[in-house]
Design a protein around this nucleic acid. Structure first.
Lengths: 209, 209
DNA sequence: TCTTGTTCTAGAATAATATTCTGTTATTGG
DNA sequence: CCAATAACAGAATATTATTCTAGAACAAGA
C-alpha cells in the first residue's frame, strides 16, 4: 500500500477507501486514465460501484484524490529534505536529491501525477494547489534570496529559477518512468544536482568574496 | 488552421478531415481529452459521427492523428534550425531557440502533445516514435560527439544529455502553457540557451585548446 | 460521356460505460 | 442500548462511444 494513501486516509475505517485508491492508481498506471472503467476498478479492488461513488463522487474525483494524496506525500518528503543545508549549493543538492528519490520511491504515483496535473487543476481550486506549491518551494526560496544578495547566484528572471533548478531532473524522471532510459534517476543525483547548481550559479569572477 | 494539419493532410479532398482535427484539438485543449465527447467535436466541426469515425476509427485514433501531425511539424521545424551552426554552442543555442519558438507558435498543439504522449505511445508502434525522435536529435548528436572529443563538452552519462539540454526549457514551456508563468518562453531564449550550454559545457580549465 | 469502384458523408441503431438511486449493514457518539 | 452517520452494495438510468447501413461525391478507365 502506498504511504501516500496511508497518510491521507489513516485508520481501519478507511481501509476500503485506500484499497480503492491503490487499485485505481495501478489501473491508471497500466492502462491510462481514460481507458480504465469504473467496473475494472470495482473488480480489482473487490469493492462495489456504490462504495466508489460514495467515497469519490465520480471518476475525476477519484483521480483528484490520488493526485492530492501524492502532492501531500511529496510535501512531507521535501519538508525534511532541506533540514541541515548550510549553503545555497547544499540546499539545491538536497532539493534535487529529494526530488529524484521521491520519484524512484513512488514510480506509479509519479507517473500519474506527471500526466494528470491538468485533470486535477481543473477540478480543484487554484489557491489550494498554489498554497501547496508555495510550501514546497518555500525553504529553497530563502536560500535563493540570500545567494542573490551575496552574488553567489546568477541574476536571472525570477520566473525562470524553478525551471532551471528542476527541469533537467524532471525531464530525466519522465524519460525513466516511460521506459525511454533504463537507469534510475537516483543513480544520477550528482549529475542533476551539479547541473542545477551550474544553471543558477554566478560565474566564478562575479562572486563577491 | 494549424500548419501541422495542412502538412499532414493537404488538398481540398481532406478539408473536412483537417476541420475535424482542428476542432478536436481546440476541444481537447479547452476541456481536456477525456471530458470531450465525440458529439461535441461533431457539433463544433459541423461534421457528422460517420465522418469522424470514417477518418479516425475512434477517439484514440483522433488523438493519435493530432499527435503524429504535431510530431511531423516539429520535425520539419527542427530540420532547418541547425542549418548554419558552426560550433556545438551555436548548435545548442539554435536548438533551444527552435524548441521554444515552436511551442510559442503552436501553443494548443504543444499543450496537447505534452499531455498525451502516453495515450499515443500505447497505440502507435514504438519503432515509429523512436525513428522520428532519432531524426529530431540526429544533427545535434554529431556536434555532441565532436564536442566530447575536443574536450569542450563535459563527459557525462550519455542518457542524461538530452535532459540536460532541453529539460529547463521544457519545464518552463509547460509552466507557460498552463498559465503558471506569464512571460512567453521566447523572451527567455538567452536564459535557456545559456543554461543548456552551461549544463553540458566542460569547465574552462578542462578544454584542450 | 458513361460506368464502376472507392472514398466521403450522414445519422439511426446498438453497445459500452458512467452515474444515480434506493436500500442494507456497520460504526460512532451519547 | 439508541439514534445518527458513514460505509457498502447492486439494480436502474443516463450518457457516451462505436457500429452499421445507405446515399452522395469523386476519380479513373472504357
Amino acid at each position: 500500500m502506498e504511504p501516500a494513501f496511508e497518510r491521507a486516509y489513516p485508520g481501519t475505517r478507511k481501509a476500503r477507501k485506500r484499497q480503492v485508491l491503490s487499485c485505481a492508481l495501478a489501473c491508471f498506471d497500466e492502462m491510462g486514465v481514460d481507458a480504465v472503467t469504473i467496473d475494472t476498478i470495482r473488480e480489482r479492488s473487490g469493492s462495489s460501484i456504490g462504495t466508489i461513488y460514495h467515497h469519490f463522487g465520480n471518476k475525476e474525483g477519484l483521480a483528484a484524490a490520488i493526485y492530492l494524496a501524492g502532492l501531500d506525500d511529496q510535501q512531507a518528503w521535501f519538508e525534511t529534505a532541506l533540514g541541515d543545508a548550510k549553503s545555497i549549493q547544499e540546499a539545491v543538492t538536497a532539493w534535487v536529491r529529494a526530488y529524484l528519490e521521491w520519484v524512484v520511491a513512488n514510480p506509479q504515483l509519479a507517473r500519474f501525477m506527471y500526466h494528470s496535473r491538468r485533470v486535477v487543476a481543473a477540478g480543484t481550486s487554484k489557491d489550494q494547489l498554489k498554497g501547496r506549491n508555495d510550501k514546497r518551494y518555500g525553504a529553497l526560496l530563502q536560500f535563493l534570496e540570500t545567494g542573490l544578495a551575496s552574488g553567489k547566484v546568477r541574476s536571472l528572471p525570477r520566473e525562470t529559477y524553478a525551471s532551471l533548478l528542476i527541469g533537467q531532473a524532471e525531464n530525466y524522471c519522465r524519460a525513466w518512468l516511460s521506459g525511454r532510459v533504463p537507469t534510475p534517476p537516483t543513480e544520477h543525483i550528482d549529475v542533476f544536482a551539479g547541473a542545477a547548481w551550474r544553471a543558477i550559479a554566478a560565474d566564478a569572477d562575479q562572486q563577491k568574496e
